Amino acid sequence: MRPSTVLTLALAAALVGLPPAAAGEDPVFDVQFSNGVISPAVIEVPANKRFKLELHNHGSTPIEFESIPPRKEKVLAPGASSFLVFRSLREGDYAFFDDFHLDMQPARLIAR
């Protein structure tokens, strides 16, 4: 395949939103919400590196992912999924919680 064809295909994939076929893709972590319960309760993420949290609300009520120090929040309707991209977190322990279910124990992101 000619180099110009490869470049054209890569550009078309980027414009359509297809992920690149590169080995250095950002790590992805799934977070499940169900009527106030967050699973897993502890997620170890890479410090000082970009990563993505995929959020899934399996409950019958809306949820709001909230983490105050990194300034991240996202509301999901019942049955909805979405994601948050973190550009970088310094080493540390970051609480996150469902702002619509404050009676439940917060979960934690541990950046190492």
Results as ranks from 00 to 15, higher is better:
residue 63 I to F: 06
residue 95 A to Y: 09
residue 14 A to F: 13
residue 83 F to G: 06
residue 70 P to E: 10
residue 19 P to E: 07
residue 105 Q to L: 14
residue 54 E to S: 09
residue 62 P to L: 09
residue 75 V to Q: 07
residue 32 Q to F: 09
residue 8 T to D: 12
residue 74 K to F: 00
residue 23 A to R: 13
residue 35 N to F: 00
residue 18 L to N: 02
residue 63 I to H: 05
residue 55 L to P: 00
residue 71 R to W: 09
residue 75 V to F: 00
residue 63 I to A: 01
residue 89 L to M: 03
residue 6 V to K: 12
residue 78 P to N: 02
residue 107 A to Y: 00
residue 6 V to G: 08
residue 37 V to C: 04
residue 35 N to K: 01
residue 24 G to F: 14
residue 64 E to K: 15
residue 54 E to D: 11
residue 76 L to F: 04
residue 13 A to L: 12
residue 110 I to Y: 01
residue 59 G to R: 01
residue 72 K to F: 06
residue 88 S to A: 15
residue 58 H to F: 12
residue 51 F to V: 04
residue 10 A to V: 12
residue 42 V to G: 03
residue 45 V to C: 02
residue 104 M to A: 15
residue 64 E to H: 10
residue 35 N to W: 05
residue 43 I to W: 00
residue 68 I to W: 10
residue 3 P to T: 07
residue 5 T to F: 15
residue 83 F to D: 09
residue 63 I to P: 01
residue 26 D to F: 08
residue 96 F to T: 01
residue 75 V to G: 04
residue 103 D to A: 15
residue 71 R to Q: 13
residue 6 V to P: 05
residue 1 M to L: 13
residue 49 K to M: 06
residue 68 I to C: 09
residue 20 P to D: 09
residue 18 L to E: 04
residue 104 M to D: 14
residue 63 I to C: 04
residue 33 F to R: 03
residue 82 S to A: 10
residue 95 A to D: 10
residue 30 D to V: 07
residue 44 E to R: 15
residue 43 I to G: 02
residue 52 K to Q: 15
residue 78 P to M: 06
residue 71 R to L: 13
residue 87 R to K: 14
residue 101 H to Y: 13
residue 63 I to T: 10
residue 20 P to I: 08
residue 47 A to K: 07
residue 8 T to G: 07
residue 90 R to L: 10
residue 58 H to L: 13
residue 81 S to R: 08
residue 29 F to Q: 07
residue 6 V to Y: 12
residue 109 L to C: 05
residue 108 R to T: 04
residue 23 A to Y: 11
residue 39 S to A: 02
residue 44 E to Q: 14
residue 104 M to H: 15
residue 74 K to A: 05
residue 85 V to R: 11
residue 52 K to H: 02
residue 61 T to F: 10
residue 95 A to M: 09
residue 32 Q to N: 06
residue 10 A to H: 10
residue 24 G to H: 11
residue 2 R to A: 13
residue 98 D to C: 01
residue 2 R to T: 13
residue 73 E to K: 01
residue 28 V to G: 02
residue 15 L to Y: 07
residue 8 T to M: 12
residue 8 T to A: 15
residue 33 F to V: 01
residue 86 F to Y: 12
residue 95 A to S: 11
residue 97 F to E: 12
residue 2 R to G: 14
residue 80 A to C: 03
residue 110 I to P: 05
residue 69 P to Q: 09
residue 55 L to D: 03
residue 6 V to N: 08
residue 57 N to H: 01
residue 13 A to R: 14
residue 65 F to C: 02
residue 24 G to R: 11
residue 43 I to P: 06
residue 64 E to C: 11
residue 97 F to D: 07
residue 98 D to V: 00
residue 24 G to I: 10
residue 86 F to N: 04
residue 6 V to I: 14
residue 96 F to R: 00
residue 75 V to T: 13
residue 62 P to H: 07
residue 107 A to L: 00
residue 66 E to D: 12
residue 83 F to R: 05
residue 16 V to S: 11
residue 58 H to K: 12
residue 86 F to D: 04
residue 20 P to Y: 05
residue 111 A to L: 04
residue 48 N to E: 08
residue 110 I to V: 14
residue 84 L to R: 00
residue 67 S to M: 06
residue 91 E to M: 08
residue 35 N to R: 02
residue 92 G to V: 02
residue 88 S to M: 08
residue 16 V to T: 14
